[in-house]
Simulated assay, not measured.
Amino acid sequence: MAFHMEGGIMVFTPTLEQFRDFPRFISYMEEHGAHHNGIAKIIPPKEWKPCRDYNGVDDFVIPTPVSQFVTGQQGVYQVFNIQKKSLIFSKFKEMANSDLYKPPKVKDNEELERKYWKNVTFNPPIYGADIPGSLYDQDVKEWNINHLGTILDTVTEEYGVSIPGGLNCAESTNFASLRWIEYGKKAKRCMCRKDMVQINMDVFVEKFQPEQWEEYCRKKESKATPTKHSESSRSTGTKHNKLLEFSFKPPPTKKSKLKEEDDDLEEEVDEGRGQIGDDISMDCGRVNLMIL
Rank of each mutant, 00 (worst) to 15 (best):
Q78G: 08
N200Y: 12
K46A: 12
F89D: 01
K41C: 04
W213S: 09
Q74Y: 09
Q68Y: 09
E17W: 06
K219F: 09
A224L: 08
R234V: 12
H240Y: 15
D264T: 14
D262F: 12
N241V: 15
L178W: 10
Q138C: 15
R52F: 06
K254T: 11
I39N: 06
M5V: 09
L148A: 06
E158K: 05
S177H: 07
T15K: 11
E215D: 15
L289A: 01
K118A: 09
N168F: 00
E111P: 03
V197Y: 13
K91Q: 11
E47G: 10
L87S: 06
M5R: 05
W180Q: 08
Y183D: 14
E113S: 12
E260G: 08
P210S: 03
E157L: 04
F69A: 00
F22R: 01
A2C: 10
V57Y: 03
L167E: 02
A187S: 15
Q212A: 13
K223N: 13
F60P: 00
K188W: 11
Y159E: 00
N123G: 08
S27V: 09
D99N: 13
A187H: 10
L152R: 02
K46Q: 14
G277P: 07
T156Y: 03
W213F: 13
Y28E: 02
F80H: 12
D53Y: 09
T225Y: 12
K105C: 05
G149V: 01
K105M: 10
L265P: 02
M5Y: 13
S233I: 07
V161K: 00
G33F: 05
T227F: 11
E111K: 07
I26A: 08
F122S: 13
E6N: 15
E94T: 05
E171A: 01
M95R: 02
G165Q: 04
T156A: 08
K107R: 15
D99E: 13
K188C: 10
